[in-house]
Amino acid sequence: MPGKTILITGSTDGLGRHLAVRLARSGARVLVHGRDRERGAGVRAEILAAGGPEPEVLIADLGSLREVDRLAGEVGAVTDRLDALINNAGVGFGAPDSARELGADGYELRFAVNYLAGVRLVRQLAPLLIAAAPARVVNVASIGQQALDFGDLNFEHGYSGAAAYMRSKLALIMATFDLAEEFGPAGVMVTALHPATYMDTTMVREFGGSPLSTVDEGGDAVVRLITEDVPNGAYFNGRKPARADAQAYDPAARGELRRRTAELISAAVG
């Protein structure tokens, strides 16, 4: 890790915070991302207390694609290379019976944060990742997946937070396969994983779930994907290769998702 620069989205809580401190303790320069500056300052203090290099704290709401672009610009202002991007930020199931939420661009919030933001960030940061090749992108997905309904991509009908979450995570896995094909030849490896089941995090407690694993277990699985020799474009359940929902392997479905994604991003940022 010494000499490596790593951006971790959603790194002021839960798995992201664990990874930020853990990787910094190993010598990496961590770019900490969150929505709250005070919590970001808390992670910075924890990193410095652990003996890690001085981190950067970057604040952005990933429910807005313009904020995603601003975040990418701020990353480019503090580094000329990015050895790893961990797309960890996410919105969970939400509290039981919670209402449908929208991000700043009018897109269903889980689809916006868990999927669109990560895909946009990879593309905006591609020059920095290529400059650091061999570089890694790790998309934190989930074993909970539900096939996308392209007739209702913004989930206006029959909404549930759990289903929205599972659709967004499958979309992220589908994009992982495409991004791996696109950027692999340039030396950027892209993988996705379900880190661990029901880690002891705010996201799990919010919907009333009982923790079944720890952030240390999830952290082990993520760190493996940025340090070990693993296949490009693969999906993992923890540390083991796994198979995602069948829709992820359907070329027509992935093509439709790419097309619709480009339309949504263009509508939001031009």
Rank of each mutant, 00 (worst) to 15 (best):
D105E: 04
I130W: 13
F111I: 00
A135R: 11
Q145R: 09
A104I: 04
N88A: 07
L148I: 11
D149P: 01
V137D: 01
L128H: 12
L125P: 00
G92Y: 12
P134T: 02
A95F: 13
R120W: 13
R110M: 09
E108S: 07
G106H: 10
A117T: 07
Q146C: 12
A126I: 05
G118F: 12
N88V: 00
P96T: 05
P134C: 07
A126V: 11
Q145N: 01
F93I: 05
L121Q: 11
I143G: 15
G103I: 01
A135H: 08
L109Y: 13
Y115G: 09
F111V: 04
I130Q: 15
R100Y: 11
R100I: 06
I86L: 02
N87E: 05
F150Q: 04
L102H: 13
N114R: 11
V91F: 15
G94C: 01
V137Q: 02
R110S: 10
Y107E: 01
L125H: 13
A89N: 00
L128I: 00
L102S: 10
A117S: 12
L116G: 08
A95M: 14
Q124W: 12
N87V: 01
A89C: 02
A112P: 02
V137S: 03
A112S: 15
G94M: 06
A141G: 05
A147P: 04
D97E: 15
Q145I: 06
L128C: 01
V140D: 05
A117N: 07
A117F: 08
Q145D: 06
R136T: 03
R123H: 15
F150S: 05
G103C: 01
D105H: 10
N87H: 13
P96H: 11
L116T: 07
A133W: 12
R123P: 01
Q146I: 13
A95S: 15
L121R: 14
Y115H: 12
L116W: 14
V122S: 08
G118D: 06
G106A: 00
A131Q: 06
L128M: 07
A126G: 01
V137F: 09
N114F: 07
V122I: 13
E101A: 14
G94F: 13
P96S: 07
A141I: 06
V138P: 06
R110T: 09
E108C: 06
L109Q: 14
F150D: 01
I86D: 08
G94N: 10
F150H: 08
A104G: 09
A141H: 09
A117V: 04
E108K: 12
R136C: 04
Q145A: 02
L102V: 09
G103N: 02
P127Q: 07
Q124V: 04
G94H: 14
N88K: 02
L128D: 03
R136Y: 05
A141V: 06
L148S: 03
N139M: 04
V140K: 09
F93G: 00
V113D: 04
A89W: 09
G90D: 08
